[in-house]
Design a protein around this nucleic acid. Structure first.
Lengths: 201, 201
DNA sequence: ACCTCGGCGTGACACCTGTCATGCCGGCGG
DNA sequence: CCGCCGGCATGACAGGTGTCACGCCGAGGT
């Protein structure tokens, strides 16, 4: 009997996944949480062996939660399940100590197998995403560039960003210009969108 | 026995919802599709009585699919289930003839009840969203404004948008300026993001 | 110690962008 | 019929934006 923890902020999806996995004779969902920062505590309390983690969660992302599980509960394995197949996510999830990475549009029947493989100590990674994450490599953005791009995501004017990070407008423009070059974009909004798509933020 | 059709582009979520709803004694999932433009045909072939429709789907949105069901199969009711609780979505879903609107972070056990209510001819609408969609009213954007905003979503320069719709750059700037005023934004990217959040696009 | 290199920060310049005043056109009520 | 209004289109002007050349500093390599 494999003991499972489910973490997803959408209650409907969480409950539905629980129903799906409980149908398997050798799987048992022993805990469900809706926030990333509740994962470690719930896993410890319930004695979970495998954690199914969504990335987009309040409190802590699924990737950071996987790192926390790795650190606090070394025997527990993590399987990251997410909506968005962003190449950078795969890399970061694996570096954080996750044993597997699956996107939400894989067939439902494969999920239980993925859980079993992870529990057995194997790695499970979506092959398309693995290839994609290899070809475009790790994020080329520097720390400042990444930070300023996240502020630029909502289309804020340069002046607002400059004030927020206590920098000259010229400096902000310069970092963003570098990011525009590295993403192949022509405006900072486009650069921010591209970086987000690739999981660089 | 209520006959259900499930439409969601994420196979994992679709399968999980099927598992969840099949647990109910009086519900039966008779069809599953991953595209909006397959809904009507599958509903007809399977004799579904209620359609559970996600909004974000390839081919046709869940809202447009609800309208198509309304038109082609008048006896069949639609329940829209979506990730994003955007006020404009509720209004448009109801106008399209959907009988219910539920967001994906409602508790799983309430979903079956929502299906039963819709099947019985009642309306099921998330109360918070209903209130929100009333206070900020329908979209104040004109046709052109909405069109140009969608093109501005990815941060394209004005020149690119102007070329795409065969208009002068000045005209494009003017429409976008109007949209900026109506959304309370200060840049077109911000305006596009706000309009998207409210379901105006 | 010296050099080099990459990240960071700054200001000047050319260009793009948002605002405004203006005009055209179709629909609607007096 | 006529005036009025709202949507659409355009160009001029002021201000915001991306690019560039430059300088500073700390981390390796020689």
């Amino acid at each position: 009997m494999i003991r499972l923890l489910l973490a997803d902020d959408q209650a409907l999806v969480r409950g539905a996944l629980a129903a799906l996995l409980d149908l398997e004779a050798d799987l048992e969902v022993v805990a469900q949480v809706g926030r990333g920062d509740e994962v470690v505590e719930a896993a410890r309390a319930s004695g979970a062996e495998v954690c199914l983690l969504d990335i987009e969660m309040p409190g802590l992302t699924g990737i950071d939660a996987a790192a926390a599980v790795r650190r606090e509960l070394p025997g527990v394995r993590s399987l990251v399940v997410t909506t968005f197949g962003r190449p950078g996510y795969v890399r970061r999830a694996i570096e954080a100590g996750a044993s597997g990475f699956v996107v939400k549009d894989t067939p439902a029947r494969q999920l239980a197998d993925a859980v079993r493989r992870v529990h057995a100590g194997l790695r499970v990674i979506d092959p398309d995403l693995a290839a994609e994450s290899l070809i475009d490599g790790p994020s080329p953005l520097t720390g400042r560039e990444r930070e300023l791009l996240t502020y630029a995501l909502d289309g804020s004017p340069v002046a607002a960003i400059a004030a927020r990070v206590h920098l000259s407008e010229g400096t902000v423009r310069n970092h963003l210009s570098a990011a525009i070059g590295k993403t192949g974009a022509t405006t900072r909004s486009e650069a921010a969108r591209i970086a987000l798509d690739r999981g660089w933020l």
